[in-house]
């Protein structure tokens, strides 16, 4: 193996290993409590994941909350990548509709109960 190629592989490893670790840790994520929807960086709505709901995000797309998960439906954008994304439920997970400027994010663990 040439020296340069070895450098390549070291570089790629340095890039990939932390990322893979981050992904693995992500898989251990705690279930989220709520779903936060932002449009253009500003909070549009927040909804509890425990209650089934259908939220119309300003006509740009719809967010369906069901079974403690959130997913995107009927986006106006062309690429429909956001609606193809599997439902999210772990804290920190996101679905983004870039053309629509919408970010659907699961907010991390709040208390299990409030009294």
């Amino acid at each position: 193996m040439s020296k340069k190629l070895r450098n390549d592989l070291i570089l790629i490893a340095l890039l990939i290993i932390p990322a893979v670790l981050a992904l693995a840790l992500g898989a251990l994520r705690k279930p989220g409590r709520a779903c936060q929807i932002t449009v253009g960086g500003e909070i549009f709505a927040e909804a509890d994941l425990k209650t089934d709901a259908l939220i119309d995000v300003d006509g740009l797309l719809k967010v369906r909350i069901e079974d403690g998960k959130a997913r995107v439906l009927d986006p106006v954008c062309k690429n429909k990548l956001c609606s193809a994304h599997p439902p999210i439920s772990a804290s920190g997970e996101t679905i983004i509709c870039a053309p629509g400027g919408v970010v659907v994010k699961i907010l991390g663990q709040g208390p299990d109960f409030t009294q």
């Binding site: 790629i12 932390p18 990322a19 981050a22 992904l23 253009g40 870039a98 970010v103």
Partner: peptide
Amino acid sequence: AAAFLGPGAFGYLPALVVWGA
């Protein structure tokens, strides 16, 4: 993306790093 949509975009970083590499 973060400039337009807020910090939520960084959630994709690990996956895109692996894919990009």
